[in-house]
Design a protein around this nucleic acid. Sequence first.
RNA 1: GCCGCGGUGGCGGAACUGGUAGACGCGCUGGACUUAAAAUCCAGUUGUAGCGAUACAGUGCGGGUUCGAUUCCCGCCCGCGGCACCA
Length: 808
Amino acid sequence: MYQHLEIEQKWREKWSRDEVYKTKTDQSKPKYYILDMFPYPSGVGLHVGHPKGYIATDIFARFKMMQGFNVLHPMGFDAFGLPTENYAIKNKIQPQKATNDNIKTYKEQLSILGFCYDWDREVITTDPEYYRWTQWTFLQMFKKGLAYESNEPINWCPSCKTGLANEDLEDGHCERCGTLVIQKPLRQWVLRITDYAERLLDDLEKLPDWENSTKEMQRNWIGRSEGAEIDFALKGSEKKIKVFTTRVDTIFGCTYVVIAPENDLVLELKDSISNLTEVNEYIEENKNKTDLQRTDLNKEKTGVALKGIKAINPFNNEEVDVFIADYVLNSYGTGAVMAVPAHDERDFEFAHIYGLRIKAVIFPNKEAEFEGKYAFTDEGILLNSGDFTGLSSAAARKEMIAWMLKNNLGAKKVNYKIKDWVFSRQRYWGEPIPLIHCEKCGVVPVPEEELPLILPNVESYEPSDNGESPLAAISDWVNVKCPHCGDAAKRETNTMPQWAGSCWYYLRYIDPKNTKELVDKKLEKYWSPVDFYVGGAEHATRHLIYARFWHKFLFDIGAVNYEEPFTKLKHVGLIMGEDGRKMSKRWGNVINPDEIVKKYGADSLRVYEMFMGPFEQSCAWNTNGLVGARKFLDKVVVLGEIKEFQEVKEIKSKLHKTIKKVGEDITNFYFNTAVSSLMILVNDINEVKNKISALPLTAGDFGKFLQILSPFAPHLSEEMFEKMGHEKSIFASSWPIHDEKLIKDETVNLVIQINGKLRANLLVPFDISEVEVIELVKKNETLQKWLEGHEIIKTIFVPGKLLNIVLK
RNA sequence: GCCGCGGUGGCGGAACUGGUAGACGCGCUGGACUUAAAAUCCAGUUGUAGCGAUACAGUGCGGGUUCGAUUCCCGCCCGCGGCACCA
């Protein structure tokens, strides 16, 4: 047993006093930038699952330090956002105060785990000196035309008089009061992320060190699809309906056209619609539906025919009916589709309900028949398709588009699922959007020299009844002179979403105090990009897409040198409660790290969390397992107290194998097997120690063992290293290098299989030949029993591994 | 429904590019030390049969490829995460 509290405190203080982890600023050495996704400092504090990723990056950072890199390993806080605002409203304190308190708690909780962060570089998104540059970047986007105003529907609770995130809805009702949530259009600032869709997609190819699964999720999120926009003329009218399709090959099977109810086209056509009352009723009914209600797949499809309107299929001049139906989304494509019930499931379902014609034109082969039970959505061969009959789907698409272009009936088109980014919130606790509305000059940016535009204090943090931000109520803040013409004007009162601050914090760590520019070019060139980024899988799409977009914009305006901010990315798996459920107050299964550290020490917690299982996998907490990690460290302490040293060759070889293994495993983020190999080494040392009553290593070699243990258990290793007489910190020492000669085994355990089944193990020289092995087999009695009376067909020999004898 | 990940002892998990399945840890059983307990140390621990050497079965299920499959292929089942009428 060792006194973990005393040792850990001693070293935390000493490391801090000696500035052991201060980022080195000389640029002569290679750099390594390893970054954690910074936390949101909520009121409840950390549980034992939060530090898992931080422990991993801490180990990695220390490993890189010892390998001679200048390591940048910073930490900060993503502190704007709704949870703090709600917490502040509920507890009647200022959001800024709540944030400061929470950050203080977080930092205390993090500090006792012994992380090697350079706190001089701390970044807090709510710091005006930080959000000055968040606002500055927004202004650059505004100036480039990437920010625009738009009326966007938000989830609106008429009772709470507030906008709600999708998360805050329960079955289309307000989570808090149960009122039915409606869609209310509000003026919003929106960023044209869709302009970057192609690059965001293509550049994923430049990220070989990202998990394939993450890239796939991003691809799906961006959702590129290639197709065509086709004009369906309207009978007796100049107007036409533009539809988007990826399956032009099915167009001869089109039996009607559907428009989204909120599509402006419906308004334009109203004079020709004979059942306008019915149509308006349908539109009215569906207007207030939330996305969730609309997209509930269990719901039966509904729609209304636009009587009096006929569209003409340009490929065969057939007249088809036109419907409005909410299964067509106005926000995707052209907000109108050609319906091919035979070959699209949604159209098929709709056609069934309304008894519409179903015409099959794609078949798996020429002889096949359309059964009519469900839509045939595969590719196939075209029949009943005019001049295109007989072609395969792929060939038909090519030829049909060519024909369409030639006759000027439409265009090739690429569509994306990704939508422009609604970048404003009607909330208090966010970065103010630095724009001014002037009646004469329109929207005018706040002059850059006036940044940061400070978030003013207010009496009440609640949004106003009409859904405006509480900033709108501060008249002496809102009312300003137009920077352009000097007339009376009003400030924008929307604030930025929480995502904004996390889009570029990794750049601020590089140059945390800069007041002249976003980041110094030379520093950026040296430290960028982030070599390794670690955080939760829940950020695989949104945060990581927004940050990539933001970075590409900064690249375009020349603020940064690289197009992709994060070279390598890994996701950390959750730690669940002992009951297998997510750790949460609600289940009462939260384990507090402070208590664990107090009782077992930070080093035990670190070793245990890394040993639990593969880093990216989620895993249930088990305090007994933690005790196992502590026992391992206790064994190490016992070894350190031995004063007799007697080198044993076999142990030296095992040490060098472990040096190699631990280094490789840290590099690959295989911490569980790294810890395991350290445990095995300790067990081996112990076994020999008991026999010879001395430590079977030289003091120098024991020091090497402490070095490879040190990233996992920094306090204890440092303490033992010092006790051995070292004056400098173990983290200023160089990572040991294994000796290949010592790793090579002279003899190996060779497996003898007969018909693929293990029958014997032979201890043989590592370079034994097949002939020699067969000689040994013939001399071996047990093997002979198996061979007797059988003919050997062949043998398979894997040098140094196995011999398989195949019998007839 | 689609996309992604996974399924190995009582439990967490290991097994390099196809080559001894169950490393390491927890738990459990037995033993040593102790008046006793805790802690510590030693031994055992996939199942079945056997005193035992050993044999057979065994990595979600059913097939296949191979001298040999946890690993590769085909068809299913189950769990987790994400997205959701994207034309």
